[in-house]
Amino acid sequence: MSRQALLSVENLTMRFGGLTAIDDLSLEVPHKAITGIIGPNGAGKTTFFNCLTGFYKPTSGSVVMHHPVRGPVRLADLPSHKVARVAQVVRTFQNIRLFANMTVLENLVVAQHNALQKASVFSLAGLLRLPSYRKAADQALERALSWLTRLKLMEFVNHPAGALPYGTQRRVEIARALCVNPILLCLDEPAAGLNPKESAELNELLLYLCREEDVSILLIEHDMSVVMNVSDHICVLNYGRKIAEGAPADIRVNPHVVKAYLGEDDLEDDMAAAGA
């Protein structure tokens, strides 16, 4: 990690009563890279995302986003909508949370709510259709269409989001998150429920976003074909603790990781088989 970290997590702990979901986790997420977070079920991955994005208040520890313009922003102090608005950290969900009855285009325009709301001046400029608001609305439409084009979703533009195939919904959710203009995009199991072809397309998409669009990505994923192929850096959690960190090739053979996934019997081949 030679580059400066984008997000620094220090001694993060999250307790629910007697259960310690995240235990003294420290982690650095680098700029313009894909960071994978893996771990067995219940390892605290989604809880980590919830702490990051303001849905949970961590018990202790700090999460600091080094925003390129605004400087360091303490995420744990912000309500969830400000995490997206101020820190530009945007997340997706493990169970897709699209606005199912609204069209794909509407979903993407809602994601640009804050800019549009400002232009609508308490809805007055909007109701009167002042040029300033119409310009903002046109820009929002343009941005939505450009992401739809880049994510190859144009054919679904006017479809109700809830009626789309599962894999397409995942892409729409990513497109919607991108409309918020994220610096750090947190994806919670984006490959869950995808078939191998769709997973491969997802790999391509993630690499494209990171390399071409300069979006840093934090990725929770069980599908090893995705994590191992796209991640620059992987962090492994188990029982809320970080048990390993490093490049995909190192993680693959790390004895702690193999133990966490497969039990005591540390056979490298088994790990590879589980991954594939």
Partner: peptide
């Protein structure tokens, strides 16, 4: 639009900065 979005999924709205 945000009214309808809140009706559809409030948590997603928050995650989008609304």
């Amino acid at each position: 639009r945000a009214w309808e979005a809140v009706r559809e999924d409030e948590i997603a709205c928050k995650a989008l900065g609304i």
